[in-house]
Design a protein around this nucleic acid. Sequence first.
DNA 1: GTCTATAAGTAGATAGAC
DNA 2: GTCTATCTACTTATAGAC
Lengths: 229, 229
Amino acid sequence: MSEPTPAPPARRTRIAAQDRRDLILAAAARRFAEFGFEATTVRQLADDVNILSGSLYHHFATKEDILDAIVRQPALDQRDRALRIAALPVDAETRAVTLLEADLVAFTERQEAYAIIFAERKFFRRSDQFHFVTLARRDAFEAWRTILRDGAEAGQFRADVDLYLTISTIMRMLNTGADWYRNEDGSPIDVMKSYSLEELGNFYKGFVLSSIRAPGRAGEPMPQAAAFD
Amino acid sequence: MSEPTPAPPARRTRIAAQDRRDLILAAAARRFAEFGFEATTVRQLADDVNILSGSLYHHFATKEDILDAIVRQPALDQRDRALRIAALPVDAETRAVTLLEADLVAFTERQEAYAIIFAERKFFRRSDQFHFVTLARRDAFEAWRTILRDGAEAGQFRADVDLYLTISTIMRMLNTGADWYRNEDGSPIDVMKSYSLEELGNFYKGFVLSSIRAPGRAGEPMPQAAAFD
DNA sequence: GTCTATAAGTAGATAGAC
DNA sequence: GTCTATCTACTTATAGAC
C-alpha cells in the first residue's frame, strides 16, 4: 500500500524561470540605462538577482540576448507608432502633436529601454544582430518627414522648414528629454522641480510648434492629439 | 684632440615625447568620441600610434589621465565662455544669441572633446577626478539662467518661460547637435546634406528664439552676436 | 534552476632590458 | 622612449554535479 500523498514541499525559495528572467531583465534595463551596455558585466546582473553568473546562462544564451529582449519591442513600437500616426486622416499639425505626445508618453513609461536605444545607437549601428533598431529609428524619421512635408504643403508650417535639421533636432530633444525626465541629469538645480507628463508635453509641443508654424499662425490654439489605436 | 663635431645622427624613426603624446591624445579623442571611454582599451590606443601598450605608460600614468588631458580645457572653456557672455553689458537676447553661437562654434571645432564631455556625463558624475566637469557644466547652466531671467524681466522673452526645461533642452540640443554635425548620426537620409556652420547657427537661433520671445516680437530681426573676448 | 569549478581570453598596469 | 615579458584581476561563457 502506498503512503498517503505527502503535502507538497515548501518551495518558498524556488523561483520560476519566467520570474527570474523578468528580474534579470529589470536589473539589466536599469544598469544598461545607467552605465551602458558594455560597462555592465553579467556578474553584476547575476548579483542583482542573487544568483551566480553561470546560472544566468540558463535564462539567456548571451549578454546580447538580454539587451535584445529589452530593446526589441520598444524599438518596433516606436516605428509602428510613427507610421500609423503619420498615416492618420487628419491635418499635419494634429499628426505632429499626436506623434510628439505619443513618443513622449512611451519614452517616459519605458524610459530605460528608450534611453538605452538612444545611448547605444552607435553600438547598434555596427552590429548585425541589432540592425533592426537602426532601421526602426530610420522609419520613424521618415514618418516625421511625411508629416512635416504635408504641413508645409498645406500652409500650416513654414515653407522653408529644414526637414532634416528639424526632425533630427526634435528626435534628439525627445530622446534625451525622456532620459533626463526620470534620471535628473545631474542638472544644476538646488530644488528638484518635478514635472507632470502633461507639463512636459505642453512644453515640447510649444517649443516645436513655435518654430515650425507658418508666420501669423503663432496665436492659434494647439490642436488636441488624435486617437491612433 | 677632440674629433670634429659629428653630424647629428639621423633620427627619422625617433619621435619626440611631446609628438607621441599628441598622437596618443588625438587617437584617444577619436576613439572615446566614437565608442566611449570605457569601451576603448589602452591596447587600441597603442596600436593606433604604433607602439605597444606598455610604452603608453611612459606618456600617461593611467587611462583616466588621457581622458583628463582631452576634456579638462574644453570643459573649463565652456564655463568661462558662458560666464563672460552672461556678464556682457548688452541686452539679454543678444547675450543668448552670442552664447548659443559661441558654444556651437566651440562644439564644432572641438567636436570630439565636447561629444565625450556630453556622452560620458554619467561617468564624470560618479568620479572624483572628473568632478570638475560636472561643476563646469553646472556653471554654464547658471549662466544661461541669468540670461533668460534677465530677458524675461526686460520683456524680451515670455514671462512664463520655464527656465529649467528651456535651458536643459537648449543645452542638450546643442551638445547632441554638435555630435551629429560631424558624425552623421546614422540618420536616415539618402543624400547626405552638408550644412555650413552659419546655416546651423541660424537654425538653432531661430529654433530657440521663436519659442522664448515675448508674443509680438516674432518678426523682429535676429540680433548680431556681440564680441566677448 | 542553481551550484561549483573552470576555460579562454582580455583588461589596466608594471619591471627592467636596451 | 620603446620593447619584452608578465602580473593580477576580471571578462563572457561552458560543463557537469546536485
